[in-house]
Amino acid sequence: MTLAYSFKSAFQSLCREKWINILSMLTVASSLLIITLTAFFLYNVELVASHLPDRFSLVAYLNDNISQEEIQGIVDTLKRRDDIAALKYISKDDAIKELKQTLKDTRYILEGLNENPLSSSIEIRLKRDFVTSASAKRISEEIKKVSGIDDVYYGEKVAEAIYLLKKSLQNMSIIIFITISTGVVFVAYSTVKILFYRRKEEIEIIKLLGATKGFIRMPFLIEGGTIGFFGGILGIIGALLFYLAITYRLSMVIPMLKTLVFPLEILILLPITGIALGIVGSVIAIGRLKL
């Protein structure tokens, strides 16, 4: 019964002070929209970045005049490692064919060569978690020790870039989330503080009638949560409008935008985040009550 009264009281207050509440909801919505757009951007960048490790590979060059049995032995040794996702053997002949195909119009460079100067090699793709500069270096050094392998090449800078890109994206999203969340908490705090002071006299009266701290606090927590919830809903509407605008309108100019994905989890997460931040702001605003 007390909870029902708290909800009624909160909604009466939300209607009574509608302008300040609408303003707060719009401010919260704008803040949450920034979070959503950041999440939307990062989600898509992460989606693209997540395919990069698949394209990263090490190349183990084999000694000349290596027998077929020895090659099979090397492949078996490498397959036993738990950091390798896939292997591909490239013979000397395949390597020169591939080079010729790559050079196309400038293949005359290779004319005059009496023999194939390329080595046979094994292309190694690492598991995602091992695509870091440090791991690639360690693995390449270990592989180099395998008998029959002459040298190992890997794109150190590529590995480093992939790793840094992932890390920076994570850090950036954390910083943006914390900053904007603090802003949302502050908006809820200010609004509830104003509402609290406007009802100070009423609160003093109900204290004298025997109200508990919980009875006094509950309507304000509900108000803060409601502001956050509707802020979240408005944020979703804003984000969807933005998504539709870029996928339908802007994609005519930049076709790549058509491939952007809207993370559906946001539809649930945003109102929940709004409620949580609104309640946190309210708790801080009411502070310690003295009976």
Partner: peptide
């Protein structure tokens, strides 16, 4: 010490709501 934005009924009812009495 009456609450001006509540009706007479709600002012009197407040003492009961605080006690958790049913509507």
């Amino acid at each position: 010490k009456l609450i001006n934005n509540l009706t007479v009924f709600d002012n009197v009812a407040m003492a009961l709501r605080i006690k958790g009495v049913g509507e």
